[in-house]
Amino acid sequence: MQKMLSNKWVILAFVAPAVLLYAMVVPYPLLKSIQYSFYRWNIIGTAQFVGFQNYVRIFTSDYVFTTALKNTALFTIGSIVLQIPLAFILAVSLTKVTRLNKFFKSVYFLPCTISGAAVSLLWQFIYHPNMGIINAVLKSLGLGGWARTWLAEPDFALWAVVISISWQWFGYHMVIFLTSLSTISPEIFEAAEVDGATGWKKVWYITYPLMKPFIKISMILITTSSIKAFDNVYVLTGEGPANSSTVLALHMYNRAFLQLQYGYGAALAVILLILCVVLSGVLNKVFGTKNAEY
């Protein structure tokens, strides 16, 4: 067996296609981007080497960068807090098969079949000051005084996006957790019951540790996609009002493509990349790489 599973030619044949394709498309443009981050370049003209100046400007005179960095952090934490516990609880409560549960599972998954841009269009109407459903509900509850122009409130605009994106994706993480629950063998639960574990106690001591690797997957997915978040913010608030809801990826896009400072945008992208690598590393440490075994 040992011999069969370490056959070099088989390994090569299995790994090479993926690695080659990937190497063709990902590392080279990435290195190019890192190179551009040392240039002043408007995409179309000739690039001019400026050393670390783009980085210096980001940290010294870019008043939007600080907001973007802070917002990206809040965005990530907010998305995790809103989605993971909800998805976990739903997955655990929905493991029992009844007709209704099947319905719930399908319904909760629906929003992530729609593009981020379309979801954001939809939420524009939900948050709308005059015709939006949130203000309408508040008014019908006699809480008209709480009604707001949600997307134009500097303190709320970012959370508006976090809520809409969580609405879109909680069902996806629920499905990841449901998939992982299927890998837990029922004997473990039976044994636990014999030991006197019931209800949420069982969930906390048995289900949660066994699902940890999948929670890690979800955490990493949410973290990396939050750090790269773009579509939803772009469509829903367009970084406004007055940059208050901007995030790093959007700031990068605005600078690189809309304000034609590609080199500067590339420098922002490099910072974004470093952030992603560091955070994924941290998550990996926190959750461990080894699966729980029973």
């Binding site: 993926a18 990937y22 990902v26 981007s33 790269k228 990826a249 922002l268 974004l272 990349l273």
Partner: peptide, 20 residues
């Protein structure tokens, strides 16, 4: 190596990618 891709913000590499 393959997982690094999870962390690359797609927009940043579009222009060099397109050129390639």
């Amino acid at each position: 190596f393959l997982l690094t891709g999870l962390m690359i913000p797609g927009h940043s590499t579009i222009i060099p990618l397109y050129l390639t």
